[in-house]
């Protein structure tokens, strides 16, 4: 009977730690994408998906935060209903409800906020980083999301940039509230223990 022997190349402990963090943040993002808090007065529902971007950038840094979002998008492309309203597929990533660019924007936002906060590829403990710097990372992430999402929306719907921006305008105050909540979470020290 023939047998095959091959040496086992174990994954390092630090890589395992960051990898499992990225996997769980990707899964958390998938769950948050299904949840929203209804708002009164005909306002759009308060989606929790952007928190996946904030947590990815702040906790995992640009490399692993980007990896978490790439995993989330790939799982959706593979057919698992992880996008909002249980959607899936490459078609949804590219066009969505015209908002496909926001998914790509969240990916870029996680990378940018991670790069600003951690100033390097590997994540540092948030306890050692200033709260204003973490808040700046979150602000930059929201700016990147809109910088990618709005022109993408215009391209998909064949609209001029100003008209696309006016469609997204009602969502901006809600995203600023999400930003404030994320900064509040950072300031409250909940993430620094991680």
């Amino acid at each position: 009977m023939s047998q095959e022997y091959e040496s086992v190349d174990l994954v390092g402990d630090e890589t395992v730690k960051q990898f499992t963090g990225a996997v769980l943040i990707a899964a958390l993002t998938a769950v948050l994408a299904q949840l929203s808090i209804p708002l009164p007065g005909g306002l759009p529902p308060f989606s929790l998906q952007p928190f996946g971007m904030f947590f990815a950038g702040l906790l995992l840094g640009p490399l692993w935060g980007g990896f978490a979002w790439a995993l989330y998008i790939l799982v959706g492309i593979a057919g698992v209903p992880v996008f909002s309203n249980g959607n899936a597929g490459l078609g949804y990533v590219l066009v969505g409800q015209g908002t496909g660019g926001f998914l790509v924007g969240f990916f870029a936002g996680a990378v940018v906020s991670g790069a600003i906060v951690h100033r390097g590829l590997q994540p540092r403990s948030l306890a050692s980083l200033s709260v204003p710097m973490q808040a700046a990372g979150c602000v930059a992430a929201v700016a990147v999301v809109y910088a990618i999402g709005v022109p993408w929306l215009g391209s998909v719907l064949g609209l001029p940039l100003t008209r696309a921006a006016s469609i997204m305008a009602p969502y901006l105050p809600l995203d600023l509230v999400k930003l404030a909540v994320a900064v509040g979470i950072v300031g409250g020290g909940s993430l620094a223990t991680r």
Partner: peptide
């Protein structure tokens, strides 16, 4: 939103430690 995000993250990171 803050309560849900923080508590969800705590559970998630506990699972991350166990998965690792």
């Amino acid at each position: 939103a803050r309560l849900l995000a923080v508590r969800s993250l705590e559970r998630t990171m506990d699972r991350s430690d166990r998965l690792g």
